[in-house]
Design a protein around this nucleic acid. Structure first.
Lengths: 66, 66
DNA sequence: ATTAAAAGTAAAACAAGTTTTACATATAGA
DNA sequence: TCTATATGTAAAACTTGTTTTACTTTTAAT
C-alpha cells in the first residue's frame, strides 16, 4: 500500500506538523506514514481524507503485494 | 466510528467466515469489527471496500466523537 | 555562511490490532 | 427435537501502530 499524503500536503501547503496537529496525531506518525513505515488506522485515513476533501482511495492505494 | 459491514455482508450473502477468508483475516477479526471492538487498519478497510465495490467512506463512517 | 524551519531518524514505552484456540449461544432446517 | 451452521465471546500471545524525547540532516531564505 502506498499513499499520496506528501503530495496532498504540498497542494494544501501544510507541513507534517500542521497535518499532525489538524488530525490529532504526532508529527512522527505523519512522517512514518509518508515513508511507508507502517499502515495507519482507518480512523486516521478517514480524517486525512476528510481534511483534504478527497476519497480515502485517492490517498491510500492498494498494491498487488497487499 | 461505525461501520456497515454486517449490512454489506447481508447484501452479498456472505458469512463472517466468508468475508474473513476473502480478505485474509480471521473470522474473529470480522466479528470484532462488526461489534465495534476495534478500529481496523486502512489495509483492511481498502480490501473490504474493494470487495464490496463501494467507497471506504460508505462502509466506515466518522462520528462526532472521533 | 548562518539561521530557522522542516523533514528524517531512532529507541523505548505504551496502546491497539490480529491470531489462535476454545467454548457458548443462537438460528434455521430436517 | 436434533443437528449443522453462523455468530458471539474471551484470554493469551503476538504483531503492529502511535507517542515521546531527542538528535541529525535538509532546505530555503537572509
Amino acid at each position: 500500500m502506498k499513499n499520496n499524503i506528501k503530495v496532498q500536503r504540498a497542494i494544501h501547503d501544510m507541513t507534517q506538523a500542521d497535518l499532525a496537529e489538524k488530525i490529532g496525531v504526532s508529527r512522527q506518525t505523519i512522517n512514518a506514514m509518508e515513508k511507508n513505515k507502517y499502515v495507519p488506522s482507518t480512523l486516521l485515513a478517514l480524517k486525512i481524507a476528510k481534511l483534504f476533501k478527497i476519497p480515502v482511495e485517492d490517498i491510500f492505494i492498494l498494491e498487488n503485494s497487499d
